[in-house]
Computed example of a mutant assay.
Amino acid sequence: MPETGAGTGTGTGTGTARAVPQFDAVELRPKGSKYCVVVFVINEGEKIRAQLATMAELAETFDVVIADGGSTDGSLDLDSLRGWNVRALLTKRGPGKLSAQMRMAFSYALDQGYDGVITIDGNGKDDPAPIPEFARLLDSGVDHVQGSRFIPGGRAVNTPLSRWLAVRLLHAPLISLAARERHTDTTNGFRAYSARLLGDETIAPFRDVFMTYELHYHLAIESSRDPRFRTAETPVTRSYPAKGKTPTKISPVRGNAHVLQLLFRAVRRTYRRPTA
């Protein structure tokens, strides 16, 4: 029988209380690897089902954990998840969007004793084949691994021109400026984080200030600036449909304005932990 639990939102980190949204956890199989692959999803329908089917073989080597923002489309039924070798389903019940899902998943991973977390979006855009390379980089001592379609070996397939321009000419240069280190694909959620980075009290990712997209930016900037941590990029493939509407959860006007606001805050290092 699967073990079912609930996140309290008040777990403890390395000596400091964690702010974690309320969530339900259903464990479908025991822990079996040193790193877990966290898949972020909300109402992705057949896209997440196809992605998990593709990842089923990798899930025999790496524990796959679904971090669900509260899907209502029935795409994450437990029988299917078992068939795809998924280890656990976490369902966020508390407030917040992606950054809240990240805090939920990271807290669970630390409590479970994983040495690091590999993250990937559940919208079917990313080829999961590089997951073993992310793990190899974590093994080598890298603390923050950014997947990039814009470095040698990476592939950007059917990237909308507006997205390409926004990342290459605005988002990545600003993050790089703040990080004091070149970053090339700063909106890409295919990344890896060491447990050392996630549990660090100076980085402090478990705060309620991280609710939407802030945490990605904060972790990239602060891990690059802090000499205690190592960072790297690794090539990945991200593909968009050749035709039809661009799949995204960000609305074209209000959503993009919000992302820009968060970007400028992160670049000013607004999200650093307050010091006495």
Rank of each mutant, 00 (worst) to 15 (best):
L165R: 15
L165N: 11
L165H: 10
A166S: 15
A166P: 04
V167G: 03
V167W: 04
R168Y: 06
L169E: 14
L169N: 12
L170W: 13
L170D: 11
H171Q: 13
H171L: 13
H171N: 13
H171D: 13
P173W: 09
P173N: 11
L174Y: 05
L174V: 09
L174W: 05
L174P: 05
L174F: 09
I175C: 09
I175Y: 08
L177E: 09
L177T: 10
A178C: 08
A178I: 03
A179T: 04
A179E: 03
R180T: 06
E181F: 11
E181N: 14
R182N: 11
R182T: 15
R182G: 06
H183L: 15
H183S: 13
H183K: 14
T184Y: 14
T184E: 14
T184I: 08
D185N: 15
D185H: 12
D185E: 11
T187S: 15
T187W: 10
N188D: 11
N188V: 05
G189K: 02
G189C: 10
F190I: 05
R191W: 07
A192C: 10
A192Q: 04
A192K: 02
Y193I: 04
A195L: 02
A195G: 04
R196I: 03
R196Q: 09
L197K: 01
L197G: 00
L197A: 07
L198G: 00
L198V: 03
G199P: 02
G199D: 02
D200I: 03
E201W: 06
T202H: 13
T202P: 02
T202R: 15
I203D: 00
I203G: 00
P205R: 04
R207T: 09
R207P: 05
R207E: 11
D208L: 10
V209N: 10
V209C: 14
F210A: 07
F210H: 05
F210E: 03
M211Y: 14
T212Q: 15
T212E: 14
Y213A: 09
Y213E: 12
Y213G: 06
Y213F: 12
E214T: 05
E214G: 07
E214M: 09
H216M: 13
H216R: 14
Y217V: 08
Y217S: 11
Y217G: 08
H218E: 05
H218R: 05
H218P: 01
A220D: 09
A220W: 03
A220I: 07
I221C: 02
E222T: 05
S223V: 01
S224L: 05
S224D: 09
S224N: 10
R225D: 01
D226A: 03
D226M: 01
D226I: 00
P227D: 00
R228W: 01
R228A: 07
R228E: 04
R228Y: 01
F229P: 00
F229K: 00
F229N: 00
F229D: 00
F229L: 00
R230M: 10
R230H: 10
T231W: 02
T231K: 05
T231E: 02
T231A: 03
T231Y: 02
A232Y: 03
A232M: 06
A232L: 05
E233D: 12
E233L: 08
E233H: 09
E233R: 08
P235H: 10
V236E: 05
V236Y: 04
V236N: 07
T237N: 10
T237H: 09
R238G: 07
R238N: 14
R238M: 15
R238L: 15
S239V: 04
S239N: 07
S239F: 04
S239E: 14
